[in-house]
Amino acid sequence: MKEVIVIADSRDSQVKAFVKIGGNELYKVLFRKNYKIPKSYMQWRELAALISSQAPLFNNAALDLAHKFTAHRIALWVVKDAPIYCLDNQFFQQFQQTDIGDKNLIFKDLFSQIPLYSMMLLLPTKTLVSPDGGYVDFLNIHCSHIRHPERSEGKKYGISVHFLKHEHDMSLHFGCVDTKGTIWFSGWGINEDDGVIHQRPISYGIAKVGKKDNDFIRELQSLTMQCLMFLTFEKLETEHITFKETINKTGFSNLKESKEKCLYPRWLRDTKNHLPQVRHLKENSSHASPSPHWRRGHWRRSAVGKGRVDRRWNWIKPAFVVGDF
């Protein structure tokens, strides 16, 4: 796959310049997949161009490790024909108000049960702001296992992606390019015998990482982990986005689905209980009613099954607390 590198002052201008010159062969292949995505998320034309411009760069010696690792994981998503998920805005807010808890214990169970190894997660646009002022509207997530290199290698669409051997038994990485063009990449390593998380306090990029950057990376880490936890422990089956959810509901949009072949992402949301819980404080409470606020959620490991010897992770969702006057 031939590399096409476009230098621009933002992701948008880079994508537009890439499309203007005709992109590359991978872009033509991906564009024909014709994903239909809800309007409040990054659209397929832009996402396909970004993926196509980044995926071939993982062997480029001129790039820093953060960029090369991000490109490598994006390339794996391509060759594995991995799924796209759209994170529902309500869920996004609830994940932000949830504490993970014992990461070591969760990680050990997560990696033994995880139902997928590569995914593209789309976030509601103009919602998550990075320290450089750009928006993060997607995360590419990949889990690899040292004894299953076939999950992290492949050849398709003119791209040949090799397995990157890592120090620990398993690794989880996420990466993205925000709308300013900044690369954000991080991850963890874990060994199966102890379940302890290993993370080196270093930057893979050439830019100096400050406190705000570290805080933002931790926010992305929490979001990544909770999405995987929900898919693993709460809901193995997810519904596909429908045509009606991808059209503009205002104006004179064509409400009839086209007969041309297209694909739809999957929702990451709770279809049974979609609305967040709202708790009302009683007027005769003995203390002053606080301003509306979130009561934080958490993940709990409960005893289940015959004799209650098995363990299962449950998400105790956050509640939005308001005064009741």
Rank of each mutant, 00 (worst) to 15 (best):
F233T: 02
K282Q: 12
T271D: 10
N254K: 09
L220R: 04
L220Q: 05
D270C: 10
I247H: 02
E234A: 10
R266C: 06
M225K: 06
E257L: 03
R266I: 03
M225E: 08
E260G: 03
F230D: 13
K259S: 15
F243E: 01
L268R: 02
L231N: 03
D215C: 07
G210I: 05
K212G: 02
F243L: 03
S222W: 00
F216G: 03
I241A: 06
D213F: 05
G251D: 03
T232S: 05
L275A: 11
Q226F: 06
C227S: 11
V209Q: 11
T232Q: 05
K261Y: 07
S253W: 06
E219W: 00
H274Y: 13
K249V: 10
Q226E: 12
M229F: 02
L236N: 12
L223K: 03
E239C: 00
K249E: 13
L255E: 08
M225C: 05
P265I: 10
K244E: 15
L220G: 06
N273D: 14
W267T: 04
L275S: 11
E237D: 13
S286I: 11
N284G: 02
T242S: 14
F230Y: 15
D215K: 10
L220P: 09
N214M: 12
E257N: 01
E234V: 14
T238V: 15
E260W: 05
W267D: 02
L263C: 13
H240F: 06
K261S: 12
T250P: 00
H274Q: 09
H280Y: 15
R218T: 13
E260P: 00
K272E: 13
E245R: 10
S286E: 11
K282C: 08
E283P: 02
Q226C: 01
N254L: 07
E219S: 12
K272D: 11
K244G: 00
F252K: 11
C227V: 12
W267E: 02
E283A: 14
D270E: 13
T242D: 02
W267I: 04
K244T: 11
R266M: 12
C227N: 11
L231M: 15
H280N: 10
Q277M: 11
G210E: 08
S285K: 06
R266N: 07
V209S: 08
N254F: 05
M229I: 06
F233R: 01
F230I: 15
K282Y: 07
M229W: 02
K244Y: 11
N254C: 08
S285W: 12
I241P: 01
E239R: 09
K212F: 10
L268F: 04
I247F: 00
K272T: 09
E257G: 04
T250M: 09
F230T: 04
D213L: 04
Y264A: 01
C227A: 10
S258F: 03
K235Q: 15
N284L: 03
L255G: 00
K211W: 07
L236E: 09
T238I: 07
E237R: 13
E219F: 00
K244Q: 14
D215A: 11
K272Y: 06
L275M: 08
K211E: 12
D270I: 06
